[in-house]
Every structure is written in C-alpha cells, then in structure tokens.
Amino acid sequence: MTKVLLHTTMSLDGFIAPEDDSTEWMFGYGAAGSLGMETMQRLGAVLSGRRGYDLGNRPDDGERKLYGGMWAGPVFVLTHRANDVPDDPNVTFLSDGIEDAVARAKAAAGEGDVAVLGASLSQQCLEAGLVDEVVLHVVPVLLGAGVRLFGSGGPAPLRKIGGDGVGQITDLRFAVEGRG
C-alpha cells in the first residue's frame, strides 16, 4: 500500500530554511543514514509545493536536484499559479487542490511511497489527514527564524517507529496515529 511521507531535513528548533532560504546550514554534519537511504528507496513519487520548486530552480544557484540527484521518478508540484508554470518536462504541475495532488502522486508512485516536500504543503497534508508517516533528519543547529516546518495546525499524535543517526544528524520516523 502506498504511503504518504512527510520527508524533510530540519533544524533542531523546527525550521526547514533560514530567513535567506539558503541551504548551507544543512551540510557538514554527516550524510544520510540508513533511515534516509531506506526512505529514498521506498519512494515512487515526490510531491512538492511551488515555493520549494521555485527556490530549487533559482537562477545562478547552480543545478539543484532532488535528493542530491539520486531521484529520477515522477515529480508533482502543487501550485496556486496554474497560469504561470515553467516549461519543465520533468515536472507535472497541479492546481486542483491538496487531495487531488496527493491522489495523483499516489497513482504515479505505483508500489512506492510519496514524499511530501515543503512546509506549507506538509502542513496542508497533515491537516487534511493525508500523511501516514513523518520522516525527519534533524541537524544540530538552531536557526532562530525562517520557514517553520510545523505551524499552527491542530495536534497530530505520532508514534515513533524508527530512528538512527550518522555523524551529528538524527533521523526520526513516526507513524501518524490513526493513519499507518
């Protein structure tokens, strides 16, 4: 059964990006551990928000690929700007809402799972009850401000189902109670 995974790297104080949207803060603490590699191997599709897509394709930032270039499967981007999408043959842009976007990504994933990337999209999926698991790679840095992963949504009870660490990074895996 295809699962929907909220999958991201975050700072110890809960941010996935600092105020300047840089990514350098994530590196230098170790590589993906076995949980990170296992998660990537389980994936059949990726669903991202438009902000994350745009940040990953900023001019003059060099080439940025999902999962460090280790991802080659279907990518879906949910956007509110359906009339303003780039010509990107590697991405399917969707605008029919969160439930439709998750359903389309699940259908494309086949036997694999769907990774949800981005703070707003992750929060929307959690609030809609669409997330089965939360997989976090926690980097030992306090960013203090920026893009917070979890916002003001209601409680979401979790059950720890795995964890490990390589270098300074702590990998955590939780089932969303009542889902998976």
Results as ranks from 00 to 15, higher is better:
residue 27 F to C: 01
residue 93 F to R: 08
residue 43 L to N: 02
residue 26 M to S: 03
residue 68 G to Q: 08
residue 46 V to G: 00
residue 49 G to K: 06
residue 70 M to H: 14
residue 100 D to F: 02
residue 71 W to H: 10
residue 47 L to H: 06
residue 25 W to C: 06
residue 15 F to K: 07
residue 12 L to W: 14
residue 23 T to S: 12
residue 99 E to W: 03
residue 49 G to R: 05
residue 48 S to C: 07
residue 40 M to V: 05
residue 66 L to W: 14
residue 54 D to P: 02
residue 70 M to K: 15
residue 44 G to F: 05
residue 64 R to A: 06
residue 34 S to M: 09
residue 17 A to Q: 07
residue 43 L to H: 01
residue 65 K to R: 15
residue 67 Y to V: 04
residue 60 D to Q: 09
residue 40 M to F: 01
residue 50 R to G: 03
residue 42 R to P: 03
residue 16 I to N: 02
residue 46 V to L: 01
residue 19 E to W: 01
residue 96 D to Q: 14
residue 28 G to Y: 04
residue 57 N to A: 05
residue 86 P to M: 04
residue 13 D to L: 09
residue 14 G to P: 11
residue 53 Y to A: 02
residue 15 F to R: 03
residue 27 F to M: 01
residue 97 G to D: 09
residue 12 L to N: 09
residue 36 G to C: 04
residue 31 A to V: 06
residue 96 D to A: 11
residue 23 T to E: 15
residue 57 N to P: 05
residue 44 G to V: 02
residue 30 G to R: 04
residue 41 Q to A: 08
residue 10 M to I: 14
residue 56 G to Q: 04
residue 56 G to R: 04
residue 29 Y to S: 00
residue 58 R to L: 15
residue 84 D to T: 11
residue 19 E to Y: 00
residue 42 R to K: 01
residue 57 N to F: 08
residue 61 D to K: 12
residue 50 R to C: 07
residue 81 R to W: 08
residue 32 A to T: 02
residue 16 I to K: 02
residue 57 N to H: 15
residue 74 P to E: 15
residue 85 V to Q: 10
residue 37 M to C: 00
residue 9 T to S: 15
residue 87 D to Y: 02
residue 80 H to Q: 13
residue 33 G to Y: 06
residue 45 A to P: 10
residue 97 G to K: 07
residue 37 M to S: 00
residue 79 T to N: 07
residue 75 V to W: 10
residue 40 M to E: 06
residue 73 G to E: 14
residue 53 Y to W: 12
residue 100 D to C: 00
residue 96 D to L: 10
residue 56 G to K: 05
residue 14 G to N: 09
residue 46 V to P: 04
residue 34 S to P: 15
residue 43 L to G: 01
residue 13 D to E: 10
residue 36 G to W: 02
residue 21 D to R: 06
residue 85 V to P: 14
residue 55 L to A: 02
residue 44 G to K: 01
residue 39 T to N: 01
residue 41 Q to L: 02
residue 27 F to H: 09
residue 47 L to M: 03
residue 81 R to E: 13
residue 94 L to K: 11
residue 96 D to I: 09
residue 40 M to Q: 06
residue 12 L to M: 14
residue 45 A to L: 03
residue 24 E to F: 03
residue 35 L to G: 12
residue 39 T to F: 01
residue 81 R to S: 12
residue 46 V to I: 04
residue 50 R to D: 14
residue 86 P to W: 09
residue 73 G to A: 12
residue 23 T to Q: 14
residue 39 T to V: 03
residue 97 G to T: 05
residue 50 R to Q: 10
residue 76 F to T: 13
residue 13 D to A: 09
residue 84 D to E: 15
residue 22 S to Q: 08
residue 45 A to D: 07
residue 19 E to G: 00
residue 59 P to C: 01
residue 63 E to N: 03
residue 70 M to W: 14
residue 66 L to T: 10
residue 75 V to C: 10
residue 29 Y to C: 00
residue 96 D to V: 07
residue 12 L to F: 13
residue 60 D to H: 12
residue 53 Y to E: 08
residue 57 N to R: 13
residue 88 D to T: 05
residue 73 G to D: 14
residue 69 G to K: 14
residue 81 R to N: 14
residue 14 G to D: 12
residue 32 A to I: 01
residue 64 R to W: 15
residue 37 M to P: 00
residue 86 P to R: 06
residue 67 Y to I: 03
residue 17 A to I: 02
residue 7 H to S: 11
residue 59 P to N: 03
residue 85 V to W: 06
residue 93 F to K: 09
residue 59 P to T: 05
residue 56 G to H: 07
residue 20 D to G: 07
